[in-house]
Design a protein around this nucleic acid. Structure first.
Lengths: 238, 238
DNA sequence: AGGGTTAGGTGATGCAGATCACACAGTCGT
DNA sequence: ACGACTGTGTGATCTGCATCACCTAACCCT
């Protein structure tokens, strides 16, 4: 078992996934030390809000364990989930850097731990350790990239089926088997999936039936078995 | 008349709009000097492609004059326009910083001038002048912000009418009159508007008739007169 | 003038997916 | 064991918009 993030993210961590490209990995000894001084770790229960859309930025959260749902809601009450974050993700960075309100709401989907770095401390860090600014730029451009992916799916994918297939593909990328199949633990409700792909709960329900019937996937309890990525990819570009 | 960007963006410019928050404004003398050495200015005709989606990042462009259309196309050929950039905008920064292919195509909508800064030079700049990294982070987070706006409109706005109203509102923000009305020069074709709001040309055409009939706007040659922002805002959240 | 091209208007049609309205299963608290 | 949730399946209906199929106007070449 890998050491949880909270224990190493602020060191010159060698155990980080993504080959140390994460924020605050591989900083100088002094910078890491400073980070350790300003960070504070806390455990959050399921349903806890790390921050809420529209709030002034208090600081950034580095997620150690657990999953976080990032979402935006329109005035009419429609909600979209823009991302499901997990261990290692940095939340609220854009708001802090640009000093604008958080653009999303971050809610714990399961109990978990996160490091909090206050806004001021982060800004002082940037001043004192220019190397940190580079790291942050990297992280921001990664965030931008995923935002752009989102735009592409929302703007270009025609039908809900396509978006659903796309979503399944992103889920299966992490755990692809040798024979092309893969298994994922379902953590989202149909309602939430609907909010991710921008459709209704009913449609998601029907998509599940449809995809099962077409042998694209099957459901064993809470684990989703994806038969073949290839078949899904054909759906996406059809 | 304000001096065009090309003449001042690389100086400690006092004539910049947006109170100097633009990339590469207010740098130290040495840094500006370096920038002047590595930049190259060119004039591009209408239709010229600064870069194309999927290309490896060669560098960033700082737009001096003219308008640039940023767009993405799906494999099936559907195109969305994600942004219309104008003077002062920095193009291709994310791709260069994250060293990933350009995520959009940048096409000149009218003849214009731009400064080009090669990828390597920019990276050396960051190394040599840590202050630049901060500027870049600022710029990236601004980019992220506009991308997020895009996600909100695409994901949350229900009907084409709503998106259209929203678009008109963003156009009119720049030039609002005292009585609530405003005039904008139309530079996009219906087809292009359709690609911005993710609908078809025909629907845009009908939207124009509809909005005209509802007295929300009127058209005098190529200038669009928006009657009242308030009325549009009601549409958006209806 | 004439033909080609591009932008814009508008009617007819069809269908995917939102919406509404239930019914049913599982899980919680007491 | 009981309601009271919350999550899920599925039918019936209704409609907004994509699609197709034209047509007109303006503009640019030679």
């Amino acid at each position: 078992m890998r050491a949880p993030y909270g224990l190493n993210i602020l060191d010159n961590c060698t155990t980080c996934p993504s080959r140390g490209e994460h924020l605050f990995c591989n900083l100088s000894v002094q910078a890491s030390q400073r980070l350790n001084e300003v960070k504070s770790t806390a455990v959050y229960p399921k349903g806890a809000m790390l921050f809420i859309e529209g709030q002034l930025p208090r600081g950034v959260f580095v997620l150690c364990t657990g999953k976080v749902k990032l979402s935006t809601t329109s005035r009419e009450g429609k909600t979209i989930i823009t991302k499901i974050s997990d261990a290692g993700d940095v939340l609220g960075l854009n708001a802090v850097i640009s000093n604008r309100p958080y653009e999303v709401t971050a809610e714990m989907m399961e109990p978990g731990q996160a490091n909090f770095i206050p806004r001021d401390s982060l800004q002082f860090m940037i001043k004192d350790f220019p190397e940190a600014a580079g790291k942050i730029a990297q992280q921001l451009s990664r965030n931008y990239f995923t935002a752009y992916e989102e735009i592409r799916t929302l703007g270009l994918a025609a039908s809900p089926s396509e978006k659903f297939a796309k979503l399944l593909l992103t889920w299966s990328t992490k755990t692809t088997n040798d024979d092309g199949s893969s298994q994922v633990k379902m953590t989202l409700t149909h309602e939430e999936i609907a909010e991710v792909i921008g459709t209704t709960r009913e449609t998601v329900s029907r998509l599940f039936s449809e995809f099962k019937k077409k042998q694209l996937m099957q459901l064993k309890g809470a684990t989703l078995v994806i038969r073949s990525r290839m078949a899904l990819e054909r759906i996406v570009q059809s």
